[in-house]
Simulated assay, not measured.
Amino acid sequence: MVSVEVVTVTRQNSNQDDAYEVVVVGGGAAGLSAALVLGRSRRRVLVVDAGEPRNAPAAHMQGYLSRDGMPPAEFLAEGRGELARYGVAIVRDRVTEVARDGAGAFTLSLADGTPVHARRVIVATGLVDELPGLPGLAERWGHDVLHCPYCHGWEVRDEAFGVLASEPFSSHQALLVTQWSKDVTLFLHTVRELPDADWERLAAAGVSVVEGEVAGLEVEDDRLTGVRLADGRVVARSVLFAAARPVPRSGLLAALGADTKDTPYGPYPAIDETGRTSVPGVWAVGNAASAMEQVINAASMGYRAGLTINAELLMEDIDATAHRRRAGAFTAQAEAAVSRAVTGERTHGLPV
């Protein structure tokens, strides 16, 4: 388990230790990226991290420019260090509930009983990979049982690949991995039929097809050596690709009544291009919003959400100040605050 540094933040604008402008639920690439943008925008931000990253089983992450091959735990640790420079608070805990507070903001309950308050909420809780129920598969997950050739294909190139079919779409996965090895075997397992076009493509790509249900894996010296069928046959393989069912951790969004959309992987939150959900003031980013987002894409989603939220809060505060001026409630104290803002001394947070 990766340790999470707890950062204590004191801001001039905060009248409550538990009042934040933005609370980010989840400390993976998406959540940390959003928090970085907001911290650099001088916002008071809290990241609540349960410490359950999706890619924890993987020794390295690939495809992230300038960070290719970096261990995921090291990547997150560096991200937390960057946030500390901008006063972003990070706590190891879990958000159990998010509720509107009646004033357009939110109260979040932490597992340890602590309430925190926020004007905006970013849900970056990721997803859980539900693996096929095959003996020994979970123990090899992220090592020599893999799911994404873009994440791991280069590292196992030219080895003997197996692909475990769990649905007709698995034939596409078998075709895809031929880019990294020409020794590919598709195990039909529980899939009984494939479209004729799939059979034609598999043959053209040189993919061998083995019918019959898979019973387990053969492992020697902590290395996958073969796939064992229910009839006792063992097919030598050193890598097995298997499709997991990605299930978003969307309980908080569901409790808030957020709209969902149907995807090939089941229902996911309905969001716009910035991650905004149907619940005003709530964003969803990273794998909490999409099954297909790899680390670099998840970070990009968090970045866009952070930009959008900062601009929205800024305009909201300016409009509130303008409204009070029109209403004649502009006091000398408030006038002084506006003057400080013009000269770069603005206090950041709720409008004065």
Rank of each mutant, 00 (worst) to 15 (best):
V6N: 12
L46P: 08
L46M: 12
T190Q: 10
A124Q: 10
V191G: 11
V88C: 07
Q62S: 11
W154L: 00
L252G: 06
V247Y: 02
A203S: 15
G275I: 07
R326P: 02
E78P: 07
D317I: 03
G63A: 13
H117K: 12
F161T: 02
A174G: 06
R54P: 12
A255Q: 07
P248W: 10
V88D: 05
D49W: 01
R85G: 14
V25L: 06
G226L: 05
A255F: 05
V24D: 07
V47Q: 13
L307V: 10
Q333Y: 04
E21L: 14
A236E: 01
C151G: 02
T185K: 05
T178C: 03
R120L: 10
G102V: 00
V295T: 13
E5T: 13
E213P: 03
Y265I: 03
G306K: 13
W154E: 04
R54K: 11
E312L: 04
T347A: 12
L36G: 09
V207Y: 05
T321M: 10
F330Y: 14
S300V: 13
G212Q: 01
T125H: 01
T225Y: 00
L194I: 08
T260N: 03
V234F: 04
F330K: 01
P115V: 08
V163Q: 08
A258W: 06
D317P: 00
E5R: 15
G63T: 14
P264M: 11
R228L: 06
A311W: 12
L38G: 09
E293R: 15
R80F: 12
Q294N: 15
P71G: 11
M315A: 14
E21I: 12
Q16W: 15
A111D: 14
T178K: 00
P351H: 11
V123E: 05
A230W: 00
V214N: 05
V235I: 14
T107R: 08
P195R: 11
K182L: 02
K261G: 03
A230D: 01
H348A: 15
V98M: 04
A311V: 08
E74F: 14
R228K: 14
A111M: 02
P246E: 07
L127M: 13
E5I: 12
P246D: 05
A205N: 08
Y265D: 00
G26L: 04
V128R: 10
V338I: 12
V95Q: 11
